[in-house]
Amino acid sequence: MKGMTVIVKTVAGWAKMLVFLFGVYIILFGHLTPGGGFAGGVILAASYVLLLLAFGRRFVEEDLPLALDSKLDCLGALAFALIAVWPLIWGGGFFVNFLLKHLPESALNLVSAGTIPLSNIAIGLKVGASLFLVIFLLSVFSDDHGTKTRATGRIADPKE
């Protein structure tokens, strides 16, 4: 996949920041407005998929290498598990909202919900990284298969 025309590339270059920022907004304000970690994570993945479609595979691979992407995926899962087991150390239960009683008592604030924004960030990181990873792998695979069948012409003929 080589990428598209210069018009598509220019527009995608401007739009990618806006899409990415919208995903970050959806994640951070997930406990006050509609949205949350799942929707925001998918939007983050969609911003990189936009880059993948417009600029081609090599560009994205330099921008976000696959090894870093897998590490981000594992980091999100690990952070969510850590938020879950952290209260166990201080004598609470699994998944107790341990930050809530240390925060100021006021509703509808950005920091009013204890561990929920932290969980949102972890979930968003995990969902975005893993979905981008699988779409990237699918695109790589399709390319390899196409060149293979065109080069040999044998694999698509299973009759023998």
């Binding site: 799942f38 969902v127 979905l131 699918l138 298969h145 694999i155 299973p158």
Partner: peptide
């Protein structure tokens, strides 16, 4: 909300199985 995101993951798994079978049998 959780089920929708899971469905995307399982869709990717099913499609990769389909592509693999297409590569093997054509």
């Amino acid at each position: 909300l959780t089920s929708i995101v899971i469905s995307l993951g399982t869709l990717a798994l099913m499609i990769s199985v389909c592509i693999r079978i297409y590569g093997k049998y054509g």
